[in-house]
């Protein structure tokens, strides 16, 4: 199945900001994160089709996955 992955901020360094990838059914967010060589613990916000999700959520055909690093200071 195909999914679209959008990376934001520092995740774009040396990576495409948006890419469409082929994944197997049952693929979890965490699997995709590792594919992009992003340490899972560095991901703060995960959105699938605009809704907040977790590393353990399973992706579906046509999903748009957006990954954001943490921005926690104030």
């Amino acid at each position: 199945m195909k999914i679209t992955v959008r990376l934001f901020a520092t995740f774009r360094e040396n990576r495409e900001k948006e890419s469409t990838i082929e994944t197997a059914p049952g693929t979890k967010v965490e699997d995709v994160v590792r594919t992009f060589n992003i340490p899972p613990e560095d991901v703060a916000i995960i959105m699938i089709n605009g809704r907040g999700k977790t590393l353990k959520d399973v992706l579906s055909e046509g999903d748009v996955l957006a990954l954001f690093p943490p921005v926690g200071g104030g």
């Binding site: 613990e41 703060a44 916000i45 690093p69 921005v71 926690g72 200071g73």
Partner: peptide, 18 residues
């Protein structure tokens, strides 16, 4: 949405530089 819809309280792994 609320903050908990997209923020994880256990992820404090951010750079404190500003």
């Amino acid at each position: 949405l609320c903050l908990a819809c997209f923020l994880d309280s256990e992820n404090e792994n951010f750079n404190d530089g500003i």
